[in-house]
Amino acid sequence: MDIQPTYRPDDNYHHMLDRLEHIARNFDQAAPDDLRTQIIIAVGEIGNVWPVSCQGDSSGCEI
């Protein structure tokens, strides 16, 4: 599988990295499911990066 690079605007990219760093530094071991949700939000909603399964009709979206 050949994956093409995705380039984001600098401010969006750094905002996503800041959010991921915040998540890592504040990880709550008592809520591991929340970690995945926070990462999905950072990568998907901030970085606008989603799996192909979410393209178009998102009913089969696997996140």
Rank of each mutant, 00 (worst) to 15 (best):
L20Q: 00
L20G: 04
L20P: 01
L20A: 02
L20K: 02
E21L: 13
E21Q: 14
E21A: 14
H22K: 13
H22A: 15
H22T: 14
H22F: 11
H22E: 07
H22G: 10
H22Q: 14
H22W: 10
I23R: 03
I23P: 03
I23M: 01
I23W: 00
A24N: 09
A24G: 13
A24D: 01
A24I: 04
A24V: 06
A24T: 08
A24F: 03
A24E: 02
A24H: 01
R25D: 09
R25S: 13
R25T: 08
R25H: 08
N26T: 15
N26M: 06
N26C: 11
F27E: 09
F27R: 12
F27T: 14
F27Y: 14
F27V: 12
D28W: 04
D28V: 05
D28L: 06
D28I: 08
Q29E: 12
Q29I: 11
Q29P: 09
Q29Y: 10
Q29T: 08
Q29H: 09
Q29M: 09
A30W: 00
A30N: 12
A31G: 01
A31N: 14
P32T: 02
P32D: 04
P32W: 04
D33V: 04
D33Y: 10
D33H: 11
D34S: 14
D34W: 02
D34G: 12
R36C: 11
R36G: 13
R36A: 15
R36V: 14
T37N: 13
T37L: 12
T37P: 00
T37R: 15
Q38E: 07
Q38N: 12
I39Q: 03
I39D: 02
I39W: 01
I39S: 03
I39N: 01
I40P: 00
I40K: 11
I40D: 04
I40E: 05
I40M: 07
I41T: 14
A42D: 00
A42M: 03
A42E: 02
A42K: 03
A42H: 00
A42L: 06
A42F: 00
V43S: 07
V43H: 03
V43Y: 04
V43G: 00
V43I: 15
G44A: 08
G44K: 03
G44Y: 05
E45S: 10
E45W: 04
E45C: 06
E45D: 15
E45K: 10
I46C: 05
I46W: 04
I46V: 15
G47D: 01
G47S: 06
G47V: 04
G47Q: 02
G47T: 05
N48T: 07
N48A: 11
N48E: 14
N48M: 09
N48I: 02
V49S: 08
V49T: 10
V49F: 08
V49I: 15
